[in-house]
Design a protein around this nucleic acid. Structure first.
Lengths: 123, 123
DNA sequence: CGTGAGTGCTTCGGAATTCGAAGCATTCAT
DNA sequence: ATGAATGCTTCGAATTCCGAAGCACTCACG
């Protein structure tokens, strides 16, 4: 398995923009974005969090939770629940505009539905 | 292969939350975030875009490009280059805060480097 | 015209990731 | 003790990703 993406791991010569690439890599793993989002609403236990994430695979959830802890975005509470660290909350807040955009996206596609040629499957 | 995530058949009256999950799913695919980012800087041809993305697999790039077009985030210019649609640019702009956050992330980890117990691999 | 280099894109076998059912050790209420 | 939760692991199978190779095409050069 690949290591958790970290802003450090300086590429020799220039760390420029590297932290962004690391973030894009971390977030670009299945379920990561979703977990941060769900955890931002409230602290959640393993199994409940799993349910909130459409019943995602427990093995992958465990994997992601470990990565998120390594990256200092998540941590375990005294009661055993998972929660976001202050840094994690910042990350989730940075996702705010993405959320707003998704509404725009939905509206846009409603105005101009995909053509048959573009696929997108039917329903 | 899974279909391109779409905010979904905007059921009249309630597009509730669904569009967010679709967005989180679309963005949570390897390279998608990165491609949007790179394409936001300037229109790029297939092979050049591939190089900008650390030489990612051409087959996956083609896959992502198709998804992005279906989702109306990207399109092909007359000269054949790929570019972001206005909607795609909005998406990329919504990523702005994430970029800022990644700097904070890097700074934070620099102050409190991961312990051996937290793994994170070696460097 | 032929040659070489670059392009967008596809194919396909192997590697890596994800899935998901099953199970284990605990805890808590009955 | 029993039943129902919980956090977390294991492991074989399905899916996704990788990446070298190749095809059809364009363009500059001669």
């Amino acid at each position: 398995m690949n290591p958790t993406p970290m802003p450090g791991r300086p590429v020799r010569g220039s760390t420029t923009g590297r932290s962004l690439m690391a973030a894009l890599d971390l977030f670009g793993r299945r379920w990561t974005l979703r977990i941060i989002w769900e955890l931002g609403n409230e602290p959640l236990g393993f199994r409940l969090l799993q349910r909130r994430c459409d019943g995602m695979s427990s093995s992958v959830l465990q994997q992601r939770l470990t990565e998120l802890q390594e990256a200092r975005l998540a941590e375990v509470l005294h009661d055993g629940n998972y929660t976001l660290t202050p840094l994690g909350h910042d990350a989730r807040e940075s996702l705010g505009p993405v959320i707003e955009w998704s509404r725009l996206w939905a509206a846009e596609l409603a105005d101009a539905p995909p053509t048959a040629a573009e696929g997108g499957g039917d329903g």
